Amino acid sequence: MTPPRRKRRQPQPPPLPEQPKPSPPGAADGQAEPKNPERLYAFAESQDGARAELDLVTLIVARSAPKPDGSPEQAAVLRLCAAPLSVAELSAYLSLPFSAMTVLITDMITAGLVQARSPIVRQALPDRSLLEAVMHGLQRL
């Protein structure tokens, strides 16, 4: 039986330094570009900065069709709101933060494009007649 032959390691050449990539025009020197840039949302149409009293469960209903001169976000809201949708659902479908949705929807309410409906609030206490009917039904059992 012969012993296995050992191979000598050859020295590896040092790795070549990476070439710097050319920066796009308008980019500041020394700043790295983010790999997945986030979109900035700026809605500056309201003059006084006031917002509608919107809650996560406020229902939004479209009152008109999307207009060609509107923003893409407005067109998407109008298409989605053919049937009532909550602000939370709209925010999730459009991947917009809730604060940006409230500004967008406030502008759309002011323009008359959508209507906001408050959710149906349940009464704090059930109706007395309903409780009596349940009680009588249980007694019959």
Rank of each mutant, 00 (worst) to 15 (best):
M1H: 14
M1L: 15
M1Y: 13
P4T: 15
R9G: 13
Q10A: 05
Q12W: 09
P14K: 01
P15M: 03
L16Y: 02
L16H: 05
P17K: 01
P17T: 11
P20G: 04
K21S: 07
K21E: 12
P24T: 03
P24S: 09
P24R: 11
Q31N: 00
Q31R: 07
A32P: 01
E33D: 10
N36H: 12
P37H: 08
P37I: 11
E38I: 15
L40T: 07
L40W: 15
A44G: 11
S46D: 15
D48R: 06
R51K: 14
L56D: 14
L56Q: 09
V57K: 14
T58K: 12
I60T: 05
V61T: 04
V61I: 10
A65K: 10
P66I: 08
E73M: 14
Q74C: 13
A75I: 04
A75F: 01
A76E: 10
V77E: 02
L80Q: 04
C81E: 07
S86D: 00
S86L: 02
A88C: 02
E89W: 05
L90R: 01
L90E: 00
S91V: 01
A92I: 01
L94M: 14
P97A: 02
P97G: 01
S99C: 03
A100I: 01
M101G: 00
M101D: 03
L104K: 00
I105L: 15
I105F: 04
T106G: 03
M108F: 13
I109M: 15
T110G: 11
G112N: 02
L113C: 08
R117V: 10
R117M: 11
R117D: 15
S118C: 02
S118L: 14
V121N: 04
Q123N: 10
P126D: 07
R128C: 01
S129K: 10
E132A: 05
E132W: 11
A133H: 03
H136K: 13
H136N: 09
Q139V: 09
